[in-house]
Design a protein around this nucleic acid. Sequence first.
DNA 1: GATGAATGAGCGTTCATTCAT
DNA 2: GATGAATGAACGCTCATTCAT
Lengths: 191, 191, 191, 191
Amino acid sequence: MKTPTKRDEILQAALELIAEHGFHGAPMAMIAEKAGVGAGTIYRYFETKDVLIRQLFEELKAKIMAALLAGHPTGKPARERFSHLWKVLFRYLVANPLHHRYMEQYHNSPYGVAQHRDRLLNKPDEQDPIRSLFEEGIEQQILKDLPIMVMFSLAFGPLFGLIQDQLNGFIEMDDALIEKTVGACWDGLKR
Amino acid sequence: MKTPTKRDEILQAALELIAEHGFHGAPMAMIAEKAGVGAGTIYRYFETKDVLIRQLFEELKAKIMAALLAGHPTGKPARERFSHLWKVLFRYLVANPLHHRYMEQYHNSPYGVAQHRDRLLNKPDEQDPIRSLFEEGIEQQILKDLPIMVMFSLAFGPLFGLIQDQLNGFIEMDDALIEKTVGACWDGLKR
Amino acid sequence: MKTPTKRDEILQAALELIAEHGFHGAPMAMIAEKAGVGAGTIYRYFETKDVLIRQLFEELKAKIMAALLAGHPTGKPARERFSHLWKVLFRYLVANPLHHRYMEQYHNSPYGVAQHRDRLLNKPDEQDPIRSLFEEGIEQQILKDLPIMVMFSLAFGPLFGLIQDQLNGFIEMDDALIEKTVGACWDGLKR
Amino acid sequence: MKTPTKRDEILQAALELIAEHGFHGAPMAMIAEKAGVGAGTIYRYFETKDVLIRQLFEELKAKIMAALLAGHPTGKPARERFSHLWKVLFRYLVANPLHHRYMEQYHNSPYGVAQHRDRLLNKPDEQDPIRSLFEEGIEQQILKDLPIMVMFSLAFGPLFGLIQDQLNGFIEMDDALIEKTVGACWDGLKR
DNA sequence: GATGAATGAGCGTTCATTCAT
DNA sequence: GATGAATGAACGCTCATTCAT
């Protein structure tokens, strides 16, 4: 455990304020204050507010990807890998509600115009366990033969909606319910 | 066809500008100009910009609900009703991309903090064909026995993601693909 | 005598502050206050501070040109026309010291990089009594055969230096001394 | 040739940046970087930016004075001494355009409010070849009997304008033209 | 009712200066 | 002595809102 750098403090402050109040509800001066630095200091680490917002997005994306890859049961059956991925992502976002809210705001704003939820899980230049899972499953005729994009939405579209509901207190997904829901998503995908 | 009132022109101008440029990319003066009215005139119809944004949301929500109810095959089997609802909603949002983008921005912003996508389809004080469909289906043991919220997400979560992809040009959902996708969503719901 | 418009008040306030304190010693807020308007009001009349500075320059230039042309003894001998022009310009700048200081600051700044003192007196697309005077005098072999640019500097270079001195209180040019000085400049020009 | 000290490097960097971009286009951090020193280091040599700007002015003034005095044909006729001074100054400024641009910016800014071009050539507490030339010439009735200030402007006012024109590429003063121009200035001075 | 000129608080950003290392 | 990260006051500019016409 290293002590957080000034850059980290700024990113954390920005995350908290933007997740809660939106991009224009988080003035640079407020971010600076929350981070415990001078207003000008932010600009030593981030050229503009836009750059700060974009880099924060990249950091969060990387953390989520890392969570997805950690402990991935490579080599196990498709059904098991799917279940693992789905649950890891669900639990990550429930455990990190600010990350979720930030990502959602980012995607639905001019910043994220060219980037999309699915993109997040679909960088072809990286090892992507989700894409491989789908491609493999389709080839082996375990899964329905639908475009990858449709597969993504069938698999993870329900997840994002349920995260919202859980974070907003409309539902409490316990392990049993999560398990059932993963099963239902899989039913949508499989032949 | 009635000629649009000044209020309508303002709402339409706000819709176009906000859907494209976001809330803070649409100054009141710009909305006024696009609507062909004076800047001060907006305040005769909407107390503040916040109120305008909120009322526009309500109007769009009402229009979508109206579309969902129009031509609904009451009395037909659950599977058929589901398919109808899903396709009507999909086609409505593809045909009205500004509505979709506005709703998404609204939901993922401080404005929409207390309102949610599922809420949109879940006002218990209205006749709600979706809720009845799910409740009925569960009772008749056609559908999985899951909380209504989970059912909603399983059913319509994939839809919103696919709308984004379609609007962003990443996929072209033709009638056949839509049909298959509805089928896959149904597979996720049914026992 | 019409009452000055808001635009005029802003230009006048800018002239006074910039002439005395320089471009960066005259914040927009200070100009606004001196002009008796709100800070934002300036931007209804001038897109940016740069535009304000440039338009003020153009206004002053036009006023000086107008003064030069008013009462010009067209048709009179070259010597007499020269004397008239020189004295009118001298007196105008002494009477309007802010104009002088503003013009000098403008010329010696990135704003005026492409514009020059001589340019001021040398717009070939306007009727230019100075240029005609020189061209005519050279042709008639009254004046030395030197490039027009050199003629300008010989004729008016001394003037600007003397204006500075007078405004700074280092010298008091009375009518007799002005007359002698014009004569000396003419001696420099003539064959 | 001694290696330049840190102080010299700072002054040189300031000269280049300010001459090209103006006082407010040359932040201390940029000057430091160009000089190859730390931002704080400048403050070991110059108390504030203002002091740096003023001391740079003094250094340049001293260099110009030195150039004027070097090789001065003391004892030769007034006409020859004048010609020498004029040409030395002209060539110095053409050869050192940054010096010229810096001096001009300085004079026409709040910094130079109390200092003036003529002052540059008129420090009574130094040996001043120009002042002596004029005083002597007037006494010997070679030159017009005008105040020294007027003599200065008649003699050197044209020079500064022509330097600008030359540096801006509007004129190319070759030796012959320089000679003629010196002659014209002399014609303005002499009886 | 309708207008749009006017407002000024508040924003993102810069930069002269300081000071711990 | 030298550094450069950190500071925060001050800048140019925007825009939701008001109000005299």
